[in-house]
């Protein structure tokens, strides 16, 4: 099984030169599940979108397996990075199958006609996400949680070494959240993918990610590996001036009134 490596070198991220959120970031993540945490407005989505190439970098370079991603065409990039966002556009007449099949568009011909190989990958993605029985349902008529699974199936069908996810557990119930995160873990373990997700769901972050990128309010980042979650000063720092306290031993948060 091939493994992959994603490197950010002196990357500045933001919306134009006058609104830089992060200056000269450098970090590296490998195959496995990694997470991004931070308070509202800390730039989690911006970081995810910048890595995916949806926002231009203000400075620096991103390398995947030591290759500069800036040198790739839009289609080449689409074969390396897939993304799952919180956006939910109205898609009249789109069935679940049609939606998942969009993940094959970097591979299909000019008119988008599917080959047997495309069909096989779509079927595999539907089965992996447990939505094969929904294939003919209209995407606008299924629940938010089911739609989230379709978006992941689309990303799986895209067959990229990197899957980026913005708030992936938002629409999922408690049970689905766990099976969802287990699925991400198995994708990383079985296929060597790099899974990077931004989330407020710290339970999912602590249980399922092998390393965590914490975005601080001062525009810096802290890279925390799983073994150090419990003793992380950065996580405790994040909670200063609030009524919450980080219980590192049990990887949970306590309200000061109950602690």
């Amino acid at each position: 099984m091939a493994t992959h490596e994603l490197d950010l070198k002196n990357v500045s991220i933001g919306y134009g030169k006058n609104k830089i959120l992060f200056n000269e970031l450098s970090f590296s993540i490998g195959s496995g599940v990694s997470s991004i945490i931070g308070l509202n407005g800390s730039g989690k989505s911006t970081l995810i979108k910048s890595i995916a190439g949806l926002l231009p970098l203000q400075q620096g370079k991103i390398f995947l397996d030591r290759k500069d991603t800036a040198e790739w065409s839009a289609v080449e990039k689409a074969r390396k990075f897939s993304i799952l966002l919180t956006q939910r556009p109205k898609l009249p007449y789109f069935s679940v199958y049609d939606f998942v099949a969009m993940g094959r568009s970097p591979y299909t011909s000019i008119t988008g006609k599917l080959t047997p190989e495309d069909v096989e990958q779509i079927e595999k993605a539907l089965i992996k996400c447990g939505i094969e029985s929904l294939r003919n349902s209209l995407i606008d008529e299924i629940s938010d949680g089911q739609r989230q699974k379709c978006a992941l199936a689309c990303a799986i069908a895209q067959q990229t070494p990197v899957i980026l996810l913005d708030e992936p557990t938002t629409f999922l119930d408690f049970r689905s959240r766990y099976s969802w995160m287990e699925l991400l873990q198995s994708l990383a373990a079985d296929e060597g993918k790099i899974i990077l997700f931004a989330s407020h769901d710290l339970e999912a972050v602590f249980h399922f990610s092998s390393q965590c990128i914490l975005l601080t309010e001062s525009g810096k980042i802290e890279l925390i590996v799983k073994d150090n979650f419990h003793s992380s000063i950065a996580i405790s720092e994040m909670l200063k001036n609030s009524s919450l306290k980080f219980d590192g031993d049990h990887l949970r948060f306590l309200h000061s009134a109950n602690s």
Binding site: L54, A74, S82, Q87, F94, M102
Partner: peptide, 24 residues
Amino acid sequence: AFFLSKQLDVFMLGDDYSTSLGIN
């Protein structure tokens, strides 16, 4: 217009998804 078919399909998903699926 016919040869833009695939891009038109993908574009329905929104700007961000279109870019991530290889549309310029």
